[in-house]
Amino acid sequence: MSIVAIVSKYADESSKIAEFTALRLGYRLVTMDDLIKTAAKDYNIPEKDLAQVTRDLTLWQHLFRKKKLKLVSLLEHKLCELMADDGIVFCGYLGYPIFKEISHALKVLILADPQTGKSAAADSAKQPDLLSNDGIAGWFEKIYQMDMEDPKLYDLTLNLLQMDISEAGDIIINTLKQKRFEPMTYSMNCMCNLELACQVKTSLVERLGDVEVKSHDGTIYVYSKAFKKGGRKAAKEVKEDIMRMPGVNYVEVYRERAPFDEIHI
């Protein structure tokens, strides 16, 4: 079964569409809250820490950035694991680099009335644990260096100023019927590769900070500027550590960023 990823800074509206779509397709609905709860339970990490890292943007300016990157990486790894189950609708602002590599994942951007943003901003002022709509977009840009509302990132952009929730849901369901969104050996293998890459990245991010990892059939490619400082010794240690992980056959490390367009997370 395919995957639907609904991304939006309008959390209320997009979660209603996700709920409608999941119900109609018979898919499992996974929200940001579900993801945080599952990851907290499975990794034995306080839910509060995971929630905070996805909600409090100001914390990213301060110390412990590597620790926060690790928590995001853990959430992405958990998302990969959840996607391995048959048919999910994910609604949230995390995991874009994962979805973009999976051909059977339909990526949907939801736009809504900006006035909704203002009321949500007021809500977030009352409830500091919630990100405002602009806060969500800011978080996305900070983590992924991309404009969340750039339509080029998505297969489908739906504007709720032009349609209601059920119409948006119907469009998603009809689009998903296209043959291009059917799973195939390549895309299923991509998911396995991404899951392993996420796992490796999680193990490295606290040590190296900004690191990109690519995986193909057990071969791991690690890209990090941190190798420039530590030189050969650091690279050797990283290689040895990764080689001990299950499913890894070979490791290559690079001192630069991964080439654009290549699969990395």
Partner: peptide, 27 residues
């Protein structure tokens, strides 16, 4: 040279399946 876009194009044109090289002959 497998990418998500190529995979989608292949499926749309009626491909049965797609595998990225290098692959295991058993696959």
């Amino acid at each position: 040279f497998a990418t998500a876009n190529l995979a989608r194009e292949a499926m749309e044109k009626g491909a049965y399946d797609m595998i990225a090289k290098p692959f295991k002959p058993a696959d």
